[in-house]
């Protein structure tokens, strides 16, 4: 194999986009599904970590710490290889990706949510209770929404990180942008062209998200 050092094959570059676009659909689907699952799970974990019961709090905290302290790549492999060996449950690579990333992202989000909820003055909850609301109603109507606006910037940043981190699923053969791109490179040897096309793909999708996160940060980040 002779490494090509000069020349940029525009045709190869251009024809990379069609397959990469299919990968992009997978990347977006992964990101969205993981987020849709992680938000409610993250809220649940946050509430468990704010529970009055010591044991509940300890278990929830332990769970979150494990997911936060280990690399996603390991988590992905663990669910892919170890979980089936331990439980006999074999998941498709796509489901492995969903489970591992949801475990990871919901743990991170729970920390964000917990801090957000704790930042709302307890008197706000008391005001809601004194209007005859149940504790659940107080959270849904008064505390939750206020916490939500406060954590929105951090949430947006987690979203952008997740979008980029999903590239790791290529290691377990889920056909996202990275997997398709790396396959394409192996088949065509058009390393320069394919990797550049991949970069543009991530940039086109990721840049607006990053900008949106910045805007949210400016709009809601520095209150109080």
């Amino acid at each position: 194999m002779i490494a090509r050092t000069v020349g940029f094959e525009w045709d190869a570059f251009g024809s990379s986009f069609a397959p990469l676009l299919e990968g992009a659909v997978m990347t977006v689907v992964l990101t969205v599904v993981v987020m849709l699952l992680s938000v409610p799970i993250g809220v649940g974990l946050a509430l468990l970590r704010l529970s009055r019961h010591k044991v509940v709090r300890a278990i929830a905290t332990g769970w979150v710490e494990v997911w936060r302290a280990t690399p996603v790549l390991l988590q992905l492999f663990w669910v892919f290889y170890v979980l089936p060996a331990l439980t006999g449950i074999t998941l498709s690579p796509f489901l492995v990706a969903i489970v591992a990333f949801t475990g990871h992202v919901s743990a991170f989000l729970s920390e964000t949510f917990r801090a957000g909820i704790a930042s709302i003055r307890p008197q706000q909850r008391q005001a809601a209770l004194s209007l005859g609301m149940t504790p659940a109603q107080s959270f849904i109507v008064v505390v939750g929404p206020q916490a939500w606006w406060r954590i929105l910037p951090a949430f947006a940043n987690t979203w952008v990180s997740l979008f980029k981190d999903t590239a790791l699923v290529s290691t377990i053969a889920v056909a996202d942008i990275s997997y398709i791109g790396l396959q394409l490179r192996q088949e065509t040897f058009m390393t320069l062209e394919v990797l550049t096309a991949m970069a543009l793909m991530y940039l086109a999708l990721g840049y607006p998200q990053a900008k949106l996160a910045d805007w949210l940060e400016r709009r809601f980040g520095v209150k109080e």
């Binding site: 008391q126 005001a127 206020q146």
Partner: peptide, 20 residues
Amino acid sequence: QVEVRKRVGMVFQNFELFPH
């Protein structure tokens, strides 16, 4: 308790209106 609180109004020193 919830039923009792429905019958008792409370006004706080720092108002505690819901800002959102």
